[in-house]
Design a protein around this nucleic acid. Sequence first.
RNA 1: CGGGGCGUAGCGCAGCCUGGCUAGCGCGCGUGCUUUGGGAGCACGAGGUCCCGGGUUCGAAUCCCGGCGCCCCGACCA
Length: 571
Amino acid sequence: MKWSNSLIPTLKEVPAEAEAKSHVLMLRAGLIRKLGSGAYTYLPAGFRIINKIIAIVREEMDRAGAAEVLMPAIWPIELLKESGRLEAFGEDLIRFTDRHNRKGILAPTHEEVITSLVRDNLSSYKQLPINLYQIQTKFRDEVRPRFGVLRTREFLMKDAYSFDSSQEGLQKSYDAMYDAYCRIFDRCGLEYVIVEAESGAMGGSRSQEFMVQSDIGDDKYVECSDCGYAANIEKAELGPPPPQDPKDSPDPELRETPTPNAQTIEEVSAFLNVPPSSLIKTLLYEADGHALAVLIRGDHELNENKLSNLLEGADISPANDALINKITGAPVGFAGPVGLAGDVEIIADSSVMNVHNGVTGANKADTHLTGVTPQKDFKPDRIADIRVAADSDPCPQCDGKMQMHHGIEIGHVFQLGTKYSDALGATFLDGKGNEKPYIMGCYGIGINRIAAASVETFADNDGLVWPPGIAPWKVAVLCLNTDNTQLFEAAEHVYNQLLSVGIDPILDDREERPGSKFKDADLLGFPVKVIIGRGYEKKGLYELQVRKTGETLDVEEDKLIPTVQKILKSL
RNA sequence: CGGGGCGUAGCGCAGCCUGGCUAGCGCGCGUGCUUUGGGAGCACGAGGUCCCGGGUUCGAAUCCCGGCGCCCCGACCA
């Protein structure tokens, strides 16, 4: 590609609307332009990056034995009703009504379509396993699109769905996708962490996410530097709390303390001048009709997933004010486990049991109890790990501590099981003639996010730095003076040579001053620059610059192509 | 959905509080001359529904009311 034939509107100044590094640089480098909230145009250079990523994804999916399809983005709304996910997606759906007054949606994902497709066109275990994938635009009316291309209302996703006749088969399909994902992200040059995840509203059992560590990431995960255990914050299990220090004082005396106008953890902590970790929060919940008092240390957060799992998947919801009043006999904000009415099950997080000289609500307006000792002053019915993991928490698999990180989710793999095949009646006949639901897996990759995550990870003060695998062009040929025919012809010659060995160059043939060309090339992040200027004029030498390292070297014509190839291989 | 902020030339902004001449500055853009290895200099020039609608006023970018759009923080996020 010749620069003059493309559209690469670079910006010197930082656009006001952009905050995140990737957003700023993708705008400045002329990769994207915003059309509306959460909707971006990819200009030629940006689209080339997307296409590079897609090509890698496609190659690896095909290598893993998946077959590509293309499904509609426009759905009749009934399809989501059938699977029961209309509620689950709710406001996130972009809905429309057509000229015949039929209700439709723009597809947020495609489990329903693929499941009904397979239901209607496959019938025998002999045809299994099968894995179908597509690369499609998904639509979700995000509450808050942000960070440029990282969270948008329409985005490209590679989604794959596997259909197996057995759990063992699913495991094989899942492992194959897992391996393919590693190859894909490796080839994209990303540094990523694979974390255990909750399968959540998708249903199913095993689930892992591929994360790129980044402070602007929407997801949080913990990782143990000793053993490598890593898990999404929603999922992360905790090791046992560190052993209790031997008590240097006898159990304190339990007493009521007036705490007017102090209800929240912060207020009580400040009022009584005790750290939040000495407070015991009492959260009242309703679970399938019975009341729960859930005890969590003041500086911790309840993990509802863990609580629900502990209760064998019961639907749990915070108790309403009326119920709280009934249980505690006090206004909201003063609940405590001491002396609670008998039919309330008390579930305590493990860490609560180590609290010494604790503070809880007194089940009485404007009053807290101090000097609370677990087991002595109250006895939980159950003690379990039910809180959200935090930084420096003990690892569940070794003696190490876990660190908390923010991450950008670039891919996920799920073992769905039979959730969708059951809901949509998708069955096959096994070898004995029995009807069985397909055992499914689903596997997603956020195409646009790969680009943004790469920028967040690798960009520097001068601009983007692309790994060669997804660079819009691998090599930029800079002709520093287009008026000089000798230089220009040499530049074109290099450009053609690179083309002929399949290297994918861009020729900066613009009538710009050298400074602009250098700055733009750095901003765009081409892995290698070939500079034809002074050195060529005087000594017939080409100058090579490596974007990532800043390294430069002069080479003679016959060494040029091999040297470029060598550098690209080393990056 | 709650909180904060913004909307003036392609981009970044000033002007608004305290209404008043032809709405200004930098970058970018066009033409000419000079310049040519890290975003050149000079000169000339083009480019504006001041987000939209209504109101107040002799007069509105500026004040008032209503709306729309966008950004940031939070909540949310299969």
